[in-house]
């Protein structure tokens, strides 16, 4: 390995470490949104689901780059599911909200697998 690659790998490892630390905050935010969404009819306007979708999009676009490919795939799947749910424009049922929550609850296991 040349000097440039070694320097790059060292700095990348540092960025990955920083990302892994911030990942905990990202997951806590998903869990907070998940609880808000499933605890009653507070998301009648779909704003929490939209926020989950936006966060999932960000996670899908970055997780694999920082060494969490399975988590990234799961986030992409969640984003797609949220897009599907909001596409109709109508209210999202409790059963579908529970499916969103299930996907979010799998994130931690996937993070530790990666």
């Amino acid at each position: 390995m040349g000097d440039i690659e070694r320097k790059f790998e060292e700095k990348l490892a540092d960025l990955k470490l920083q990302y892994a630390k911030r990942l905990e905050e990202k997951l806590q935010e998903f869990e907070r949104l998940s609880v808000s969404m499933t605890s009653g009819s507070v998301d009648d306007d779909g704003s929490i689901l939209t926020e989950i979708q936006q966060n999932a999009h960000k996670l899908a676009g970055s997780a694999a780059t920082f060494g969490f490919p399975e988590l990234g795939d799961a986030a992409a799947d969640l984003e797609e599911f949220c897009v599907h749910l909001t596409a109709g424009g109508g209210p999202v049922g409790q059963d579908q909200r529970d499916q969103v929550a299930e996907r979010i609850s799998a994130f931690r296991t996937l993070m530790s697998k990666d």
Partner: peptide
């Protein structure tokens, strides 16, 4: 808009 992506892209584009 994501700081993580800006950082890693800058590192790769400048260093490599």
């Amino acid at each position: 808009d994501e700081a993580d992506i800006r950082q890693v892209a800058r590192l790769a584009l400048e260093t490599v």
